[in-house]
């Protein structure tokens, strides 16, 4: 479902070229729960941005659902992000002035879904993360764990092919973090494809496959049970 072939990413800062990814090839199948680990500077964030269609590789090929997406630009990428990818961020990245419900329905707004269907799908997504009782609260009125659940609901609402989480527990205490990871596991069992980027060992242990990056290359690709 995701196939990356020799992905490279070079940033140009002034006159200096920095190679963040030096040739990554990997394949992730539908329904897999993968964790991408690595120390800071290993290129894991860059890889996430490319897998999430927020950024484009300098060279190499990227297929998402058998569609080449590595060369797409602007609006086409926005559409891929909207339809196929759900993001979960370390800082939750909720719109602070909007209610939980409004945050969750936002991707559907951009997808052009009508109001009634949005409400229905947002409600289902919020039920999945056990947050149906917090519909009209604003992010500031929610705890960290609740905020992240809302963010996960937002990622789920478009029924994306892939959920990408970048340090989803980084801003949470360990107990709340575990709750979130258990939720991921539950989603995994329901058949969602998940990629969690983390530098914490205990987080990666929830995944069935751990890809370890170092200096822009895959150092280890380990399957677990």
């Amino acid at each position: 479902m995701i196939q990356a072939i020799n992905i490279k990413k070079v940033y140009t800062v002034g006159k200096v070229e920095i190679a963040a990814l030096k040739g990554i090839s990997l394949e992730i199948k539908e329904g897999e729960f993968v964790s991408i680990t690595g120390s800071s500077g290993s290129g894991k964030s860059t890889l996430m941005h490319i897998l999430g269609c927020l950024d484009r590789p300098t060279s190499g090929k990227l297929f998402l659902d058998d569609k080449e997406v590595g060369k797409l630009k602007g609006n086409a990428l926005a559409e891929i992000r909207n339809k196929k990818i759900g993001f979960v961020f370390q800082q939750f990245n909720l719109l602070s002035r909007s209610t939980a419900f409004r945050n969750v329905e936002l991707p559907l707004v951009y997808a052009g879904v009508n109001r009634r269907e949005r409400a229905e799908r947002a409600r289902i997504a919020l039920e999945k993360v056990e947050m149906a009782h917090r519909l009209y609260h604003r992010p500031s009125e929610l705890s960290g764990g609740e905020g992240q659940r809302i963010a996960i609901a937002r990622a789920l609402v478009t029924k994306p092919s892939l959920i990408l989480a970048d340090e989803p527990t980084g801003n949470l205490d360990s107990k709340t973090g575990e709750g979130i990871l258990e939720l991921f596991q539950k989603l995994h069992l329901q058949g969602h494809t998940l990629i969690v980027i983390t530098h914490e060992r205990y987080v990666s242990e929830y995944a069935e496959r751990i890809i370890h990056l170092k200096d822009g290359l895959i150092e280890q690709d380990e399957r677990r049970n």
Binding site: N75, A78, E79, R81, N82, F87, N93, P107
Partner: peptide, 14 residues
């Protein structure tokens, strides 16, 4: 950041 979030969930430039 809000603009970034909106773009991440699928907002087009327009």
């Amino acid at each position: 950041r809000e603009i970034g979030i909106r773009m991440a969930v699928g907002a087009k430039r327009v």
